[in-house]
Design a protein around this nucleic acid. Structure first.
Lengths: 254, 254
DNA sequence: GCATGACGTTGATTTAGGTCAAACTACCCG
DNA sequence: CGGGTAGTTTGACCTAAATCAACGTCATGC
């Protein structure tokens, strides 16, 4: 299986893993670090489509050989494992369940995109910000359980948040100020601290159902990992302090 | 293969194929008619996530046995073919490529969701309306080639458009009026007529790349159909007048 | 032929969020 | 240590789209 892995690539924070318009001849499995998918509009503005955590597959596109309509950029230093498309097909002949795993992974992305869509289309700026922060916090904890309760390193600028939510960074700043004043959370220079998770959930107006769906992600230190490459993924590569891997119950978190 | 098909179901326009919060124990393949996926917010507002044409798979969710976070509603009278999840797994053991086909289908949805997301987040009302109409027009023509050039039956109300684009139906109405006044298109009681496709593309600010990605859909009367169920899908079931099936080159359409 | 209901159209007014511009603060690096 | 740059914060003002509300129009059934 691992004979197909043409080695890991390391990507510096801020660099593209692939850029919009690139021909897609390989797929990538993110093995460490944070990244985001983004689209560029004609006028140069950017829309962040989603944030990507280790274990995700990047660059699997509907039409083979077509040009990517979006790009992926690393938020932290990151590493990816590259698999050529042709190898993937060959690989799947030996391991038929790979197709299903792929479908499962892509389907998770789709669900997140749908949630994001509903938030963008119908929620206020406050709701959107609360929604996004909750989503990232929960997904993060599902991957790396056992963190200190309400605190995390969130490698985003306010501009990233704005670009994800269809807001200006100026407005994101004002929303964050309000949330801070209300004692809900603090987000300062990539350090997120959630003081009142319940209030945050209240503001985001998220139902239990959705919350649940974000948590249902296989933990990386467990044995459920849908890892296309057959290697266990590690945490962030850089910017990362050492972390405990003690298993905690994440289901009823918050 | 077809022994797994537990028969076609017929759905009346306006009915749900499945509703938000439903347990997902089966998946559906839309075999005829139009539908849309939608999410409901706590306050009852609706966000339409995407529009679904025959050939699509509905109800494939990341977490087995979880509750759906969105619903699917028929826009026209429609028909679906139901496949139990357990049967799908069994089926895929015999036909390994099914996993891949599934991944491919879901990946298409994801791409459309991403396009939609970028439009919602960063484009003006005019651009969004132009974008959506173009997308639907192109996808429609890719499925049923040989239609009269600029005209189609689009089974949407202005409220549907608003719910898809995060706008009020009032505002959609004003945008459509402007587009009509500018001689770009007319949309009246589900009859869409595009008078100036180039101007429409200009307003939507869509790049060639994206346009191309919408067209790269297998035509239903061809032999490329990624049909999970093994049966050829037909056109709409109801509301449909007879249509020619003559093959035309859709690649350079518009 | 008229009642009913869903859908579309238009105007007056309000508001959430954008834009522009000027500090301010943390952090990096020589 | 000091200067540069990327990120954050705040204020004054503006605009796109929402809201509210009335009216028009098409399609159906009795």
């Amino acid at each position: 299986m691992r004979r197909f892995r043409s080695g890991d690539h390391r990507i510096k924070a801020g660099q593209d893993i692939f850029s919009p318009g690139a021909r897609c001849e390989a797929i990538y499995s993110l093995t460490g670090g944070w990244a985001f998918r983004y689209a560029l509009l004609e006028d140069g503005r950017r829309q962040i489509l989603d944030f990507v955590l280790p274990g995700a597959v990047l660059g699997f596109h509907p039409t083979d050989g077509a040009r990517a309509t979006y790009g992926v950029q690393a938020l932290t230093d990151a590493s990816v494992c590259v698999i050529r498309r042709s190898d993937l097909v060959a690989l799947s002949r030996e391991l038929p369940e790979i197709g299903f795993r792929l479908a499962w992974l892509v389907s998770r992305d789709r669900s997140l995109a749908f949630d994001h869509l509903a938030s963008l289309g119908r929620q206020s700026a406050h709701q959107r910000v609360a929604h996004l922060i909750l989503e990232l916090f929960i997904r993060y904890r599902a991957q790396w359980p056992g963190q200190r309760f309400e605190e995390m390193h969130l490698p985003l600028t306010q501009e990233h948040i704005g670009d994800a939510l269809g807001l200006t960074s100026v407005h994101v700043n004002r929303v964050l100020r309000d949330l801070r004043k209300k004692g809900v959370l603090e987000f300062h220079y990539k350090r997120l601290c959630i003081h009142d998770p319940d209030k945050l959930i209240g503001i985001a107006e998220i139902d239990q159902n959705l919350l649940q769906s974000w948590m249902g992600q296989p933990a990386l230190n467990g044995d459920v990992g849908f890892d296309l490459t057959g290697q266990k993924t590690s945490g962030e590569t850089a910017t990362s302090s050492k972390r405990r891997t003690s298993r905690t119950e994440t289901r009823n978190a918050l």
